[in-house]
Simulated scan of single mutants.
Amino acid sequence: MNKNLPHAVRVIRAALASTGSDPAAAIAHALNDSRLLVDPEKSFGAVLRRTPAGSWTSEQQPQPTELEQQALAWDKSCERARQVAVGIKAQIGQHPEFQNVQVDKDRILVALHITDQAQWVQWRAWFGITHDKEQPLPYAVAGDGYRDGIRVSVVAYDLPQAQARAVQSAKRPFQLDGIVYDLAVPLRDAQGDVWFFQGQRSDDGMPMLSIDGRPERCSLANIVTHVGPLTPVTDVATPVSAQGGEGA
């Protein structure tokens, strides 16, 4: 119960007992004199507001201009980039390919040292980098991706050299989206199925592969897209083709 009610009852009774031609006015004035009525024009405490600088003030702050809003948004983006960079270092800082991470205003710069192109396949997926966003450099490949909504520019040092070694070591090299595949050996997909190239290609030159010598074939591009990445297998025998001979 409101603790002011007994006091209000006493004030009203006293007002009614007083003489006057307007009892309602007498009651209202009596309540006001007893501070039992709230004046909406008065504040019984200071209202503090946070300033853009982080301090507190009782003064009404003007709305920021469009330029000020853009500056505040920029500061938030830069701070967000710093937070994401800390998270990236915590997640991948112990990987042997990781070299360093830096913050450049509202984006993040990551340096990797790649010794095998399979490493780049994994990192490209982790950063969300697509092949069309890659930029070849003399001793590296650069690519832009995103982590937690922040743009990340990744430089993969020595990746061109790793790709060159893959071409030299492959008996039947074929490059797709910057990755060299050796069609002379079976390729295992992410689900564990093993694919074989038996010499067939599509009209545009894309290799067609099959599982265990089956007649159904799928393009290398579709296999990589849907069940990649692919890794070479050296302990699986080449299957016999449907025509009765060893695959080409």
Rank of each mutant, 00 (worst) to 15 (best):
Y181N: 01
Q69I: 06
D75W: 10
R80Y: 04
V224P: 06
A28N: 07
D177K: 11
Q69N: 07
D106T: 02
E66Y: 02
R147M: 15
Q191K: 14
A142W: 03
V240P: 13
A81Y: 04
F174H: 12
A142T: 03
V155P: 00
V86G: 15
G128A: 12
A28G: 04
H226W: 09
L16D: 03
T238Y: 09
Q99M: 04
Q83G: 10
T231S: 06
R80E: 10
I12R: 01
F197R: 02
A111K: 03
D33R: 11
P229S: 08
F98R: 00
Y146V: 14
R107K: 14
R82N: 12
T225D: 08
A242E: 15
T115E: 11
H29I: 01
A248I: 15
K171H: 11
S241W: 09
V110L: 04
D182Q: 06
Q191H: 13
V101R: 04
P96Q: 05
E246V: 15
A14R: 12
R124Q: 14
E41R: 11
V224N: 06
R214W: 08
T19H: 13
I211N: 05
A26S: 10
I88A: 07
F196R: 07
Q63T: 12
Q60N: 14
A81T: 07
H113E: 09
L36Y: 00
G205T: 00
A73Q: 05
V154R: 04
D189H: 05
V121M: 09
W56V: 08
V84G: 11
D144W: 10
V47Q: 12
D39R: 12
D177M: 06
L67E: 12
V233C: 15
A111P: 00
E97P: 00
V236F: 09
G128K: 15
K105T: 04
V121L: 06
D158Q: 08
P239T: 12
Q175V: 07
D182G: 06
A85C: 12
Q61F: 03
V84K: 14
S43K: 08
Q163A: 05
W126S: 13
W74E: 10
I12H: 01
G145D: 10
R147T: 13
P62S: 11
N32L: 04
A25Q: 07
G228C: 07
F196I: 14
A15R: 01
G93Y: 03
G20S: 04
A248M: 15
V154N: 06
D177W: 01
D212T: 12
Q63M: 11
C78N: 09
K105N: 09
A25M: 04
D33M: 01
V141S: 00
Q70R: 05
Q122H: 09
L176D: 05
R10H: 02
W123R: 13
G178C: 08
H29L: 03
A90Q: 15
Q83N: 14
P239D: 11
L112A: 05
D235C: 05
D193F: 10
C218N: 11
V110W: 00
R124E: 13
R124K: 15
D177A: 07
N4M: 03
A17I: 01
D235W: 07
E59H: 14
D106G: 02
N4C: 03
A166L: 02
Q102I: 11
P186M: 06
Q70C: 01
L137F: 00
